[in-house]
Design a protein around this nucleic acid. Structure first.
Length: 577
RNA sequence: GCGCUUGUAGCUCAAUUGGAUAGAGCGCCUGACUUCGGAUCAGGAGGUUGAGGGUUCAAGUCCUUCCGGGCGCACCA
C-alpha cells in the first residue's frame, strides 16, 4: 500500500476528468504531477504540486488553481480531515485518524507484501558483481561493490523480480599465467627449498600463495613439480580452483552467495568469441584499422598497429576499441563482448554490472557492444561503486601488493563483523567515495549506525518478551478503531514512506536509501520511546503489565519494516543485544 | 590534453527521481538514568550547497564556463 501512489492516481484522474469537461487545460504529459511528503514543519501528511504544473497551460496563478482543485479533491473523500493551500501553490492534505488505523490494519494483514512495488512489471535480471581476478583473496576494495551488488539484487528480488547473481571469473590471459607461475615457484620453494624470486615484478608475492601451494601439494601427491611446461595446464586449473575456493569463502563471510560463476576460459574455448565477432562483422560493427595515441601523453613508445576494431564510436565512445592483439589472440574486451552476448542469449530483460571506479572508463565500450548486439539501448546498466578510502591511525592507508600491506575481506570481517561491514559500505551513496576509518570502526563500533537500528528492534522485542510473546508471532486484533496520538502518527507516517524508499532504491539502483531510511525510522521510534519516561501513557507496557492493542499494532508495524529492511541489506536483526 | 566522476555545517554524510524556511551523526555547549533496555532521548551553536552565468512558477539537483579533488585513457584483466 503506497499512499503516495494512491493519491497521485486519484489526482491525475480528477485532472483528466476536469479536462474532459473542458474545465481546465492539461499539458501533454502529467508526469510532472507528484504527490510527496511535505517538510516536517507543515502540519499535514502529503502534498501535491498539481496546481503549479497546471498553472502555465491554464494561465492562472497556481494559488488560485490550488484553491479550486483542493475543494474538488476533498469532496467525496472521507479520509481527508483538512486540506489547504500553501505559498507557491502546494496543496497540503491531512488525513483523519481512521485513515491511519486502516493503513496499519492493511499492512499488518499483508505484512509480507508491504513495500513491494506492484505497479512495476516483473522482470528478469542478471546482476554481475565482484568478478575480481581469481589471483588472490578479496580485499577491502572489492568489498563495497560486493555488498552493493548483493543488496541491489536483494531489492529487485524483494520487488518480486527474478534475479541471477553472477560472478565472472577472469581465468584466462597473462595474469593467470603469472599467477600459476607464482604458485609453481612457491611449490618449488616448499619442496626443493628454492628461494622464491621476489624481485620478479610479474609474480604475485602474497603469503596466501604459500597456502595455495601447500594445498595443491597435499591434494595432488601424484603430480611431479619439476617441469613447469609439463604441468602448466593442470597447475593453472588447480591454482584457480584454490583461489576461487578462497574467494568464495570471503564472499560467504560477507553473507554473499552468487547463483552462478561464469568462466572466461569456457567462453573462449566454446568459440563464443569468434562467433560474436562474426556476428558484429556481419552488421558492419567491426573493421581493421588503427587507433590514435591519446593527446597530451608521451607518444615516444607508441606503436601504430592495424588491428581488428569495434566501432564503439558509433555509440558515443571516444575511440574504437581493439578486439584482437597483434599475436592474434583476443583482447579482454573481445572475450567480454562474447560473455555479454552469452548473457543476452540467456534472455534476461535487464543486465546489470557493478563495477569498481577504476573500471568506469570501460562502461561506454561494453554498453556499446551490448547495444550493437541486442539493438536495445540501456539493456545493460552499469553501476559504479566508488573507491573506499582506507584510513588507519588517522592516515590514508595505501594498499600495495607487498606483503602485509593488504587488508582482506577476512581481516575486515574478523575485526568489524559482517553486519557492520555491510552497513557501513551501504551508508553512503555508491557514487561517492567512502572513508573507511579502520581504526575508528574497530575502537568505537558502538557508534556505528548499525547498532542504532538493531537496538530499535531489540527494544521492541523486549516489550514482547515482557508479555510473553514473540516479536515475530502473528497478532490477532479484533478491530482497528484506535485513536493514535500525534507522536504515534509521526511514526506511522514514516512507515508509510517505506514503499517509496523501496521504489526509489530499486529504480535508481541505490541501496544506500534503505540504510538511511532504517536509521530515520529507528530514530523516530527511539524518540517516542523516551517520551514514556515522563508520560506513562506513552509507555508500551502499562501499569498492569499489559500492552494495549493499538500499541501492539504500532510495534508490530515498526518491527516488520525493520526486519524487512534488514533482510534486504543482509544484516541480522537481533532480539537481544 | 580528453573522458567519467565528485565538491553541501569544523569532520563524515543525507536531501523523496526539479519542490516549500537544505537535514542527520560525530565533535562542542546545556539537560534527562529508583530505565517498558541510557547502545537512548530533549535542547543550543554551526550554511552564500566550490565560483559565475543560464533554463524554470520553483535549482544542492538540469544546461554552460571556470576552480579544486578522485579514477581512467594502445594487445593488463
Amino acid at each position: 500500500m503506497n499512499i503516495f501512489d494512491i493519491y497521485s492516481e486519484k489526482i491525475k484522474t480528477l485532472v483528466k476528468n476536469l479536462n474532459k469537461q473542458n474545465l481546465i487545460e492539461i499539458p501533454d504529459s502529467l508526469n510532472g504531477i507528484n504527490v510527496d511528503l511535505p517538510p516536517e514543519k507543515f502540519d499535514c501528511d502529503i502534498s501535491t504540486n498539481v496546481a503549479m504544473v497546471l498553472s502555465k497551460s491554464n494561465k492562472k496563478p497556481p494559488i488560485d488553481l490550488a484553491k479550486q482543485l483542493s475543494e474538488l479533491i476533498k469532496k467525496n473523500d472521507k479520509d481527508i480531515s483538512s486540506i489547504d493551500v500553501a505559498k507557491p501553490g502546494f496543496i497540503n492534505i491531512k488525513f483523519n485518524k481512521s485513515f491511519w488505523n486502516n493503513f496499519l490494519k492493511e499492512i499488518i494483514i499483508n505484512q509480507k507484501e508491504f513495500g513491494v512495488n506492484k505497479k512495476q512489471k516483473k522482470k528478469t535480471y542478471l546482476v554481475e558483481f565482484v568478478s575480481a581476478n581469481p589471483t588472490g583473496p578479496l580485499h577491502v576494495g572489492h568489498c563495497r561493490g560486493a555488498v552493493i551488488g548483493d543488496v541491489i539484487s536483494n531489492i529487485l528480488i524483494f520487488n518480486q523480480n527474478k534475479v541471477i547473481k553472477e560472478y565472472y571469473v577472469n581465468d584466462y590471459g597473462n595474469q593467470i599465467i603469472n599467477f600459476t607461475k607464482s604458485v609453481y615457484f612457491r611449490i618449488r620453494e616448499i619442496l626443493n627449498n628454492e628461494k622464491f624470486p621476489s624481485d620478479n615484478p610479474d609474480l604475485y608475492p602474497g603469503d596466501y600463495l604459500i597456502d595455495i601451494a601447500k594445498n595443491i601439494i597435499s591434494q595432488n601427491k601424484k603430480i611431479k613439480f619439476d617441469n613447469f611446461k609439463n604441468i602448466s595446464n593442470e597447475l593453472t586449473k588447480l591454482s584457480i580452483e584454490q583461489s576461487l575456493k578462497m574467494i568464495k569463502l570471503n564472499l560467504k563471510i560477507l553473507g554473499i552467495n552468487h547463483d552462478n560463476f561464469a568462466s572466461e576460459t569456457d567462453i573462449v574455448n566454446n568459440n563464443e568469441v569468434q562467433s560474436v565477432i562474426d556476428q558484429l562483422e556481419k552488421d558492419k560493427f567491426v573493421y581493421k584499422g588503427k587507433i590514435n595515441a591519446p593527446e597530451g601523453e608521451d607518444k615516444t613508445d607508441w606503436i601504430e598497429r592495424e588491428q581488428l576494431l569495434f566501432r564503439s564510436t558509433d555509440f558515443g565512445d571516444d575511440k574504437d576499441r581493439a578486439l584482437q592483439k597483434s599475436d592474434k589472440s583476443w583482447t579482454y574486451f573481445a572475450s567480454d563482448v562474447a560473455y555479454h552476448n552469452n548473457k543476452l542469449k540467456r534472455k534476461f530483460d535487464i543486465l546489470i554490472n557493478i563495477l569498481g571506479a577504476d573500471h568506469a572508463g570501460y562502461i561506454k565500450r561494453i554498453t556499446s557492444a551490448v547495444e550493437a548486439l541486442s539493438g536495445e539501448k540501456n539493456k545493460l546498466i552499469c553501476k559504479v561503486s566508488q573507491l573506499v578510502k582506507l584510513i588507519k591511525d588517522g592516515k590514508p592507508f595505501k594498499m600495495s601488493k607487498r606483503k602485509g600491506d593488504y587488508i582482506t575481506v577476512h581481516d575486515l570481517v574478523n575485526e568489524v563483523g559482517k553486519d557492520a561491514t555491510r552497513f557501513i559500505m551501504l551508508n553512503r551513496s555508491g557514487d561517492a567515495e567512502l572513508d573507511f576509518d579502520f581504526t575508528k570502526v574497530k575502537e568505537k563500533s558502538r557508534d556505528n549506525p548499525l547498532y542504532y537500528v538493531q537496538y530499535c528492534y531489540a527494544r521492541i522485542s523486549s516489550v514482547f518478551r515482557n508479555i510473553n510473546k514473540k516479536i515475530n508471532e502473528e497478532i490477532k486484533i479484533k478491530n482497528y478503531d484506535f485513536s493514535y496520538s500525534n507522536d504515534e502518527i509521526k511514526i506511522i507516517k514514516k512507515i508509510s514512506q517505506w514503499p517509496k524508499c523501496i521504489e526509489l532504491s530499486s529504480s535508481k539502483l541505490e541501496p544506500h536509501r534503505v540504510t538511511v531510511y532504517l536509521y530515520e525510522l529507528a530514530s523516530d521510534f527511539h524518540s517516542y520511546w523516551n517520551l514514556g519516561k515522563d508520560n506513562e501513557d506513552k509507555r508500551f507496557i502499562d501499569k498492569d503489565n499489559k500492552v494495549s492493542d493499538n500499541k501492539i499494532v504500532l510495534l508490530k508495524s515498526v518491527s516488520n519494516v525493520i526486519k524487512s529492511g534488514m533482510d534486504i541489506i543482509g544484516v541480522d536483526a537481533p532480539e537481544k543485544m
